[in-house]
Design a protein around this nucleic acid. Structure first.
Lengths: 342, 342
DNA sequence: TTGTAAGCGTTATCAC
DNA sequence: GTGATAACGCTTACAA
C-alpha cells in the first residue's frame, strides 16, 4: 500500500522546485532538457499523478459532468448515457450518473449536490415540464452559470439548449399509418401520471392525425401510467377491459411495450390478427417479434448533447442564443399492423 | 447569473469570522444562539453551499465512488448501477460511471483517472481474470489504499472483496435440467473472445454436468463471441450451421439471447419444438416468450457491493480478510425446453 | 532557466 | 464564544 505522492515529493527527489515540476507536468514555460529529464525520471519513479482535486480548486474546473435521468435502467437512457460517456472520455471528462425516479424533489436534491461539487456541466432529462412548475427558490439551480443541456424533454420558458426527437411528428406518422390501414379505434399508452411533457407532445401528434382524418378523439383511448412498476401491469389490464373494441395500440415509450405484449399473451390476443401494435424505439423485442416501431436516434441524442455541452463549457462567456435541436424519427414498418375494413 | 458565494461572503454578511461560520455549517464547537441565527440568515440570503472540492481537499474525501463496467448499455450492468446509485445517494455519495468496452487498456486508463480524481472507492467488473494478466507496472492500480469491490467477476490472486453469483452451480443446474429432459447435444454460447472469467466458470459447470451424466464434452458445442456487436449475428449463424444436430442451447449471457432468437426466427426454428432454449437473467423478452432462464439476483449484487464498499471506506484501517460473497442463482422453469427421446 | 510565494475555499487547532 | 491562521496540493505571477 503506497502513500500517494505529491508534487513536493517529486520536486524533492528531482532536486528542483515545485514550480519546475509544475512546468514539466503542465507542459508550459521553459525548462531545460536536463531538468525536464530529471523531473520525468522522478515522476515515474514515484508513480506520481497530479491530484485533480487540487487542480480543480485552482482552475475552478473538475473535468466532470453529470447526467440526470429518470432511471438508468431504462434502455433509452442507458443508451444515451453510454454515448455521452464515450464523448466525455475522449475529452478527458468523467460522467456522474443521477437517477431521479422522475421525482421532482430528487432532481432538486441532485442539482444542489452537483452545484456543491462544482460540476463543469449538466445534461438533464428533467421532470419539470415548465419553468413555472419549479418553485421560485429553486430556479437558480436551472438558471445559473453552469452549462446545461436538456435532452428528450424541454423545460418550457427556460432558456437552455435542448436536444430532442420529433415527438409530435413521430406520433402523427404512426397514427396516420394506422388510420390508412383502416383503424379508427386506436389506443395510446404512455409513461407518467401526469404524463411527461414528451408523452404529452406525442399524444397531441396522435390527436392531430385523428383530426386530420376526421376521426374523433376519445380520451378514454389514452392511458398514462404511473412510474411505480408494480401497478403498471394492472393498469394495462384494466385499460384492455375498458377498450375491448380497440383494433390498434400505439405505445409511446419503449418500457411499456413489454407490458402490453404480456397482456396480449395473457388474453391470447395475436398480433396483428387480433390487435395491431406499434412500439416506440427499436429493441431486440421488437426485432424478434417483428413489431412496427417509431425509431428515434437515441445514441445521437447523447452524443450531440455531450458535444454541445463541451462547446458551452469551453465558451462560457458566449451569450449566444439557446439552441433547440430536433432529431428526425422514422417509422420502421414490420408486420405488427394489419389492414382492416372500416 | 449569480456568482457562487464562499464562506467569506457569509462571514462578511453575518459580521463574524469564517471560523464561526465553519462552526455553524459543520455543526461543531460552541456558537451562541444569537450568532448562529445571524449566520443561518446569511447562508440563506446568499444561497450558500459549501464547495465540496475545497472540502475534499481538506478532508481527503470526495464523497464520490466509481463503477467500472463493460457497458452500461448491458441490462445486467445498468440494473447493478441503478442499485448502487440508490445506496450511494442515501449515503450522500455520487457515482461516476466508466465503460471499458471490455478493453483492458481502457480499464487501466479509467483507473488512473479515478486515482487522480481522488475517488473514495471503486466497484469494478474487471476485464482481467487473473492478477498475473495485469502488467506489473499497473498492479498498483489494483493493490492500493483505495477501497475496491469486484462484482460479477473475481480477479484471481488479487486480495479484494468480491460479490458474485454462483456461476458454476447456475450452469450446472441448467445443464442437468436439459440432460434430464433427454438432451445430449447441448450447445452453449457466452460472451468474450477469449471468454470472460465468468463465462469460463459457467462453461466448467456445464462440463461437469455432462461428465456427471456420462455425456462426453465436445468443444465444438461451445461458442464464445467477441464484443464487437456487428459480427455477433454472423458468428451465431455459422455456429448454427456447424451444429445442425443440436437439440438444446444454453445461453450464458442475457445480451446473447436475442441474437439466438433472431437466428431461430430466421431459420424458422420453433422453441421448444425444434430447439430447446435456456436463457441467463430474466428480462421482458424471456417473460413474454416463456423462456426458461437462470435467474441471478442482479440488484442485490449492486446493493451488496455498494454497502460493502461504504463499509470499507468508513473502516479504512481495518486490515480484515477480503470477503467473497456468492449469491444463489435460480432456474426459472418455463416452457422453452421439451422432453425428447434419446 | 529556475525558485518563491500567494491564493483557490474549507477545516480545525490554537490563542484570546 | 469567537477570531486568526496554517494546512490540504496545485498553478502561476513575479522575482532572481
Amino acid at each position: 500500500m503506497k502513500e500517494i505522492k505529491t508534487i513536493k515529493d517529486v520536486a524533492a527527489l528531482a532536486g528542483v522546485s515545485v514550480a519546475t515540476v509544475g512546468r514539466v507536468i503542465g507542459n508550459y514555460g521553459h525548462v531545460s532538457q536536463k531538468t525536464r529529464n530529471k523531473v520525468i525520471q522522478a515522476v515515474q519513479e514515484l508513480n506520481y499523478y497530479p491530484n485533480a482535486i487540487a487542480q480543480g480548486m485552482r482552475n475552478h474546473s473538475t473535468k466532470t459532468i453529470a447526467v440526470i435521468v429518470g432511471s438508468i435502467k431504462n434502455n433509452f437512457f442507458s443508451e444515451i448515457v453510454y454515448a455521452i460517456e464515450r464523448v466525455a472520455r475522449k475529452q478527458g471528462y468523467n460522467v456522474l450518473i443521477c437517477n431521479t425516479h422522475e421525482k421532482e424533489k430528487l432532481e432538486i436534491q441532485h442539482l444542489e449536490m452537483l452545484r456543491s461539487k462544482q460540476i463543469d456541466g449538466i445534461i438533464i432529462a428533467s421532470s419539470f415540464a415548465r419553468k413555472q412548475d419549479i418553485a421560485v427558490k429553486y430556479r437558480y439551480l436551472y438558471e445559473n452559470e453552469i452549462p446545461m443541456v436538456c435532452i428528450d424533454r424541454n423545460i418550457m420558458d427556460l432558456d437552455r439548449d435542448v436536444i430532442e426527437s420529433e415527438h409530435f411528428e413521430g406520433a402523427y406518422e404512426a397514427t396516420e399509418y394506422l388510420l390508412q390501414l383502416g383503424h379508427e379505434k386506436i389506443c395510446v399508452i404512455g409513461m407518467g401520471q401526469p404524463p411527461t411533457s414528451t408523452v404529452r407532445i406525442r399524444i397531441s401528434g396522435y390527436e392531430k392525425a385523428l383530426e386530420d382524418h376526421q376521426v374523433s378523439f376519445d380520451k378514454n383511448r389514452v392511458l398514462c401510467i404511473d412510474y411505480e412498476e408494480t401497478v403498471a401491469q394492472e393498469e394495462i389490464s384494466d385499460f384492455f377491459d375498458r377498450n375491448g373494441d380497440m383494433t390498434a395500440i400505439l405505445v409511446l415509450n419503449n418500457s411499456l411495450c413489454s407490458g402490453v405484449l404480456k397482456e396480449m399473451v395473457k388474453r391470447g390476443l395475436k398480433c396483428p390478427d387480433n390487435l395491431s401494435l406499434i412500439g416506440w424505439d427499436d429493441e431486440a423485442l421488437n426485432q424478434i417479434l417483428n413489431i412496427t416501431t417509431v425509431e428515434q436516434q437515441i445514441s445521437k441524442i447523447g452524443s450531440l448533447a455531450a458535444e454541445r455541452l463541451f462547446y458551452l463549457i469551453e465558451n462560457r462567456e458566449s451569450k449566444g442564443e439557446h439552441m433547440v435541436t430536433t432529431l428526425k424519427t422514422h417509422l420502421l414498418i414490420r408486420s405488427s399492423c394489419k389492414k382492416i375494413d372500416r
